[in-house]
């Protein structure tokens, strides 16, 4: 018999966690790499990621700070897929994407495996997300390079 409000809340939380863990059984492969630093005393985070699914894989770039800065984004970002025979089966490069007077910038690419097969006899060796982020506060700049390669 439930007698007090704390016990009821605990049980509700347990049920919620149970549900979430059941929903969350699918798990994408891949991961991310984050580099942190500071610009004029403001902490920044620069992140690249690659995650794989059944039909697609995704790459992302994220730049964030704790408060708004003048320019936040990246100066260049490359996403590629390379095969075991060193042929690039997917390649894209973007440059100078950013937000002004903001604390966050994010971009992503969703790649469909069947669009970009490896040549005969080879298979996917690596998928990657790499490039220089941009953090500008007034006339001070930081361009940290972050690269995440999977696997």
């Amino acid at each position: 018999m439930i007698t007090n409000r704390h016990q009821k809340r605990l049980i509700l939380w347990l049920a919620f966690i149970l549900l979430v863990t059941q929903f969350g059984e699918s798990s994408a492969g891949g991961g991310s790499k984050t580099v942190s630093g500071s610009i004029s005393g403001i902490t920044y985070f620069a992140e690249k990621s690659v995650y794989t699914y059944t039909n697609t894989w995704t790459a992302s770039v994220k730049s964030s700070t704790v408060t708004n800065i003048s320019i936040i984004g990246y100066t260049w970002w490359t996403v590629y897929q390379i095969c075991t025979n060193d042929v690039y089966s997917y390649y894209i490069r973007s440059e100078n994407k950013n937000n002004r007077n903001s604390s966050y910038y994010e971009d992503s690419k969703y790649v469909y495996y069947k669009d970009y097969p490896c040549p005969g006899g080879s298979y996917i060796k690596k998928t990657a997300s790499l490039g220089n982020h941009q953090f500008t506060l007034n006339s001070t700049h930081q361009y940290p390079y972050v690269e995440y390669v999977y696997p």
Binding site: S26, Y53, T54, N55, T56, T58, S60, I92, D107, S108, K109, Y110, V111, Y112
Partner: peptide, 13 residues
Amino acid sequence: FSQDFYPSAGYTE
């Protein structure tokens, strides 16, 4: 039939 569910929305060219 298979489906990929993403944790957040994203883009393709």
